[in-house]
């Protein structure tokens, strides 16, 4: 069997490039450096009217040998604050990337599904429990945190000055920026709790 995966990826690549969504620069697919086309880089823009609006998210896509009979392995390369995406590793909890995968799905539909996931988080099936808890219990703080992360990591243009100041404050105490941000986000932006957390 002349590898069906390679053939399909070639066709899907064309499909994404020709798609309307690509024309509106909502999704994008890069062939990466690997020659066998088994490792790709996807890009999605944050959907409007969400804390991710204006952000650009880069995704690592690994195509298994058994593609399209098994789903591609996708994770966020860009850091993101979302209940269904690990804030530490970028691992994604999405059913179609697991047991609900179907062979007729393509990289285009996967990218669009991920964009839809950004627009409608599913806190009852979380990947990141801390984020999901915040999403449910403090929706305002969640929204601000996600916006702040978008600006900090995904080239978003909506600043959250209060949070930026707190990060700068902790950085002044000698903590590394990303670690400070994570600690603050995990502690609902309570500086004392975050400091304690960082020192423990």
């Amino acid at each position: 069997m002349a590898n069906i995966a390679v053939q399909r990826i070639k066709r899907e690549f064309k499909e994404v490039v020709k798609s309307d969504e690509a024309a509106k620069s909502m999704i994008h697919l890069d062939m990466g450096s690997s020659e066998n086309m088994m490792e790709l880089t996807g890009t999605i823009s944050g959907p409007p009217d969400t804390p991710y609006a204006g952000g650009t998210y880069i995704l690592d896509i690994r195509i298994p040998e058994t593609y399209p009979f098994n789903p591609p392995k996708v994770k966020f390369n860009t850091k993101i604050w979302h209940p269904n995406i690990s804030s530490a590793t970028g691992a994604i909890c999405l059913d179609i990337l697991k047991d609900q995968w179907a062979a007729a799905m393509t990289l285009r539909t996967v990218l669009l599904s991920l964009q839809a996931l950004l627009a409608s988080p599913e806190p009852d099936d979380p990947q990141d429990a801390v984020v999901a808890k915040q999403f449910k219990e403090n929706p305002d703080i969640f929204f601000q945190t996600a916006t702040h992360w978008t600006q900090a990591y995904a080239k978003g243009s909506t600043p959250v000055p209060e949070y930026s100041d707190k990060v700068t404050q902790l950085m002044g105490m000698g903590f590394e920026e990303h670690k400070a941000r994570v600690a603050l986000s995990n502690n609902n932006w309570n500086v004392e709790c975050a400091t304690e957390n960082l020192l423990s």
């Binding site: 066709r11 399209p68 062979a103 007729a104």
Partner: peptide, 17 residues
Amino acid sequence: NICLDTARDAVVSMCGH
């Protein structure tokens, strides 16, 4: 719908795919 190539030894499902 799987290999995205012209179907060879074509079959169609009851749902028409």
